[in-house]
Design a protein around this nucleic acid. Sequence first.
DNA 1: CCAATGATTGCCT
DNA 2: GGCAATCATTGGC
Length: 207
Amino acid sequence: MQKLNKEFYLGTDVAVLARELLGKIVVTKFNNQYTAARIVETEAYAGIIDRASHAYNSKRTNRTEIMFAEGGYAYVYLCYGIHHMFNIVTNKAGKPDAILIRGVEPLEGGKWMLQRYKKDRFDSSIGRGPGNVGKALGIFTAHTGTSLLSKHFFIAEDGVNHLNIMASKRIGIDYAGAHAQWLYRFFIKNHPQVTKHPFNKSAIAML
DNA sequence: CCAATGATTGCCT
DNA sequence: GGCAATCATTGGC
């Protein structure tokens, strides 16, 4: 399995990168628990010009500081006090783009995932939704700032496969005004680990 | 200092 | 379809 290199993360078009991440594999090996899952849904957040981005208007806080680093780091933040949201920082240093991983298909380490959910059987909710991505893979806010070129936390190339990719508006960002209309959400058509949402119906197929 | 809230989820009726 | 859970971060005082 080939680890994505630094150049990938330095790409300057966050929407293109969000689409390219579909099908790739997130690998974590925390506390000696190996888990891997295929990315099936992403959202792009375009740095300082995007009203939906935490770094909009160059807003720098302790939390968002990692977004301003060069691409290739994890940005993990807590949402609603419960959900650990895993983002991938991209672009050059000073260009705070990020990609939210919203859905993954479990591939390896199912027993660790079940343990994290306190379940004894698999169901399609495991890995579906951004909060569940962190939950399945054991990613917490403490991992923010971790390099994705490290041994225990990285993204890997998957072999070849033709994916049926759809684009839609992003979920849960009504406050972003006109920017909420951008087609910056990408997902694999009809995949069970993709969030169920009305936007799915108006999504556009991509070549 | 302190109140308000969110790139959400899952359980309830 | 409605809504409670739960807390770090944020911004206002």
